[in-house]
């Protein structure tokens, strides 16, 4: 019986590894969707949008809200999740500016991987590419 159990565990692990989708480059379609969402969201200067890898359901992304809302420049209940487009949409407190590094760190502490931060500029969203976590 022990041999069978070990065999089944090994089989499950193998199936899982094989079944797991290969890491794939971000699609142009998703990037375009995120750019569109950011453009709409950043209508005013007190907004920030972040594209977040791994963010695909609102419940497991609760931590993103909890961590980012603790930042002193973020408005109370100032984080919305757009899971369809894998984005965190942030509203800043009046008169405050965003610290992109602090937002990136907060999202990482929530267990996710921020890839781009979009900030307001009069010419359209200003995009900061986030370096991969070491």
């Amino acid at each position: 019986m022990k041999k069978m159990t070990v065999f089944i565990c090994a089989l499950l692990t193998t199936i899982s590894v094989v079944a797991a989708p290969e890491p794939r480059p971000e699609s142009e379609e998703l990037r375009a969707d995120q750019q569109q969402v950011a453009t709409t969201w950043l209508a005013t200067s007190n907004k920030v949008a972040v594209a977040v890898d791994g963010l695909c359901c609102a419940t497991c992304g609760i931590g993103v809200k909890k961590k980012v809302q603790k930042l002193k420049f973020v408005a109370k209940k100032g984080v919305k999740l757009d899971v369809e487009n894998a984005m965190a949409l942030i509203t800043l407190k009046d008169g405050h500016s965003a610290d992109a590094d602090a937002i990136v760190a907060a999202i990482r502490k929530a267990g996710y991987s921020p890839v781009r931060v979009y900030q307001y500029s009069e010419q359209g969203p200003q995009v900061h590419i986030v370096a991969k976590e070491s």
Partner: peptide
């Protein structure tokens, strides 16, 4: 061990 990918997430 988490794997964060565009619009998906997984873990072992």
């Amino acid at each position: 061990y988490y794997m964060n990918r565009p619009r998906s997430s997984g873990n072992f």
